[in-house]
Computed example of a mutant assay.
Amino acid sequence: MTATTSTSYPVTGMTCGHCVGAVTEELRTLAGVVEVRVDLVADGTSTVTVTSTTPLTGDQVAAALDEAGDYHLATA
């Protein structure tokens, strides 16, 4: 069995199930991603948890979010 790592990212711009689907689909295209879970907070900061066989960079995640639509990693 391959070891996996899960990382949660704060994401803004998500408002509905369609957003969840778009983000999930794009993140699943990244190499090594085996699962994507979204805790949707409509018009707020949602938590997106990505489980992968290799660690992802913030740039990879940000690029996938941009490709999915107007979604962004939340900044502190």
Score class of each variant (00 low, 15 high):
G44N: 11
T49L: 01
V23M: 06
D43G: 11
D59Y: 01
D39Y: 04
V38H: 08
Y9T: 13
T7S: 02
A74E: 14
V23I: 08
V20W: 03
E67D: 12
T51F: 03
P55F: 03
T2F: 03
V33R: 04
A64M: 12
T12F: 09
V36G: 06
S6N: 05
V61Q: 03
V23W: 05
T49Q: 02
L30A: 07
P55W: 00
A74H: 13
T47E: 14
G21A: 15
S52P: 02
L27H: 07
A42T: 14
A62P: 03
A76Q: 05
E25W: 10
G69S: 04
C16A: 11
A42S: 15
V34L: 03
L27R: 03
E25I: 08
Y71D: 10
T2R: 06
A76E: 12
T29K: 09
L65V: 12
S52I: 14
H72W: 06
V34E: 14
S8D: 10
S8Q: 13
T5E: 02
T7M: 00
G32F: 08
V36C: 03
D70E: 15
V11F: 05
T57V: 06
V50H: 07
E67I: 02
T49A: 11
T12L: 10
A22H: 10
M1K: 00
D66S: 15
D59Q: 12
T57G: 04
S6F: 01
T2A: 13
V23L: 10
G69E: 00
V11M: 13
E25V: 14
T53A: 05
Q60D: 09
T47M: 12
V23P: 02
Y71S: 05
